[in-house]
Design a protein around this nucleic acid. Structure first.
Length: 486
RNA sequence: GUCCCCAUCGACUAGCGGUUAGGUCACCACUCUUUCAAGGUGGCGGCACGGGUUCGAAUCCCGUUGGGGACGCCA
């Protein structure tokens, strides 16, 4: 039996693309691709109150940015459309009526206010409100009559009394729940739109979704959905529930708690490839020791058996490391392109060879937003203390440094051609003739040029990038600083 | 409160009855080196606890503890 594998990503347009959501999308996509199936995008906008304008675009943009191309969806259509739930109202109504006819649901005429007050009352008793709906016992024919005449009502699921429901999950195995712990949840709201509980079942069936992939927060309600499938005589899809991604300290990863959306990371200077790679490994592993995977590679090797079932904590440190790996792999020109906006923030001078600079900065960048801090000395020499010239390992102190700088100033001043090689030869010539330790010359020069404890490159690199004039100026400034009586 | 799920280094994880419990991040040391990075080498560090089952348990079962989730006219 070879049924077409079809997976879907079904986000609600309620804001930004959460990292956990993205990972769900990634896995759904990878499972589809690995099994030669289709990946469908469906927008679950049945809660009109939570809609956030522009969030559908965020979803499209994010998926596009990270390369998760869908085969069917609102924007590109497909044989099972519409793919936006708010446009499928009639479909849900039709199936709700069929479900009622099949004995799997009933009309409920209880008011929202009544339920709310009952719920509030229960809260005080340290127990959770479980509603015994009198409408469940209504005569179906009469109930239907009332509904048809326009009396406000909802449709509730009719959970069988007694017994238990078991379902199988490809990650969690077999899960059994006593029916009596389940509630007669609302399937169709009074505004005629379905709740998730109903819409996802109807759409997954109608859109022929073979593998339902979603976060494990749905694990405990999955039996309810199965009851609907059964009542309607539908084939139950394969379930793949995913462990949740948490923040440190056992807190759920959320927008409130910090930077948990894809956009945030993206704007901070994380590369989308690195983000995808990192989250792919949060809850899945390839069974070997490799960790760096492109999306194309993942498409080939992703398999459900590598899925993990315990919650994972999102580790920003490891993401950072991985991002650094991706940055280092970039071609220098590519890096320069990506770094450009950050250079523009920190460097106003126009005489800097940014490609040369990039070669120095690239190795030292983990996140693109590090860049301004790395190159902040380029435009203007920071004020620094004489103590920077003291370095035990380099065997330098202010006195030696002063001598070295004076010598360097002359030799470099005489240089006709200003490039790495000539600067190198000039300085090393000096080191040899003066019998200096390498560091005794190079450390003072590097310090004078950067005014910083550490810099993206050594003395020669910095001199080359800064240019002759600026180099001589900064060395002169260093000499002045060191000549001042302390 | 009720129900469901989970449990290997600080973090991500490999392990699926017999391993010196492996890898990666982080951390530390050393090394390379004209700083810092990057690279190389090494180190630190773990099977939550208690019972079983078994010749033998990280691995199987039960309980405890801890963590997470669900219990909305949210998804």
């Amino acid at each position: 039996m070879s049924v077409q594998v079809r997976t879907r990503f079904a986000p609600s347009p309620t804001g930004y693309m959460h990292i956990g959501n993205l990972r769900t999308a990634l896995y759904a996509y990878l499972i589809a691709r690995a099994m030669n199936g289709k990946f469908i995008l469906r927008i679950e906008d049945t809660d009109q109150e939570r809609l956030v304008e522009g969030s559908v675009e965020v979803i499209y943009n994010t998926l596009k940015l990270v390369g998760l191309e869908h085969d069917e969806g609102p924007d590109i259509g497909g044989p099972f459309g519409p793919y936006i739930q708010s446009q499928r109202k009639d479909v849900y109504k039709e199936w709700a009526e069929k479900l009622i006819a099949a004995g799997g649901a009933y009309y409920c005429f209880c008011s929202k206010e009544k339920l709310e007050s009952l719920r509030k009352e229960a809260e005080g008793k340290d127990a959770v409100f479980k509603y015994q709906d009198p409408c469940r016992e209504l005569d179906p024919a009469e109930a239907q009559k009332r509904a048809v005449t326009g009396e406000p009502c909802v449709v509730r699921q009719k959970i069988p009394r007694g017994g238990s429901t078991t379902f199988n999950d490809m990650v969690y195995g077999s899960v059994t729940v006593e029916n009596d712990t389940l509630e007669d949840g609302i399937l169709l709201k009074s505004d005629g739109l379905p709740t998730y509980n109903f819409a996802n079942v109807v759409d997954d069936h109608l859109m022929q979704i073979s593998h339902v992939i979603r976060g494990s927060e749905y694990l405990s309600s999955a039996p309810k959905y199965n009851l609907i499938y059964q009542a309607l005589g539908w084939v139950i899809p394969a379930y793949i529930h995913l462990p949740l991604i948490m923040k440190a300290a056992g807190k759920k990863l959320s927008k409130r708690e910090g930077d948990a959306s894809f956009e945030d990371f993206y704007h901070q200077g994380y590369l989308n490839e690195a983000i995808v790679n990192y989250i792919a490994l949060l809850g899945w592993n390839p069974k070997d020791d490799r960790e760096i995977f492109s999306l194309d590679e993942l498409k080939k090797i992703f398999n459900i058996s590598g899925l993990n079932n315990s919650p994972a904590i999102f580790d920003p440190d490891k993401l950072k490391w991985m991002n650094g790996e991706y940055i280092r792999k970039l071609a220098p020109e590519q890096f320069k392109q990506l770094a450009m906006p950050y250079y523009q923030k920190a460097i106003k001078r126009t005489d800097i060879d940014l490609l040369k600079l990039s070669k120095l900065v690239q190795l030292r960048t983990e996140v693109l937003s590090d860049i301004p801090g790395i190159v902040d000395f380029i435009d203007t020499l920071p004020e620094y203390d004489v103590s920077l010239y003291v370095n035990k390992k380099m065997k330098t102190d202010p006195a030696i440094s002063l001598e070295s700088l004076k010598l360097a100033l002359v030799v470099l001043g005489n240089l006709e051609i200003w490039k790495h090689e000539t600067i190198h030869d000039a300085l090393f010539g000096l080191i040899e003739t003066q019998g200096l330790k390498t560091g005794q010359m190079l450390w003072p020069v590097r310090t004078a040029l950067s005014g910083k404890e550490s810099s993206p490159g050594g003395a020669i690199d910095l001199a080359e990038v800064l240019g002759k004039e600026e180099t001589l100026g900064r060395i002169t400034a260093g000499i002045e600083l060191l000549s001042k009586p302390s």
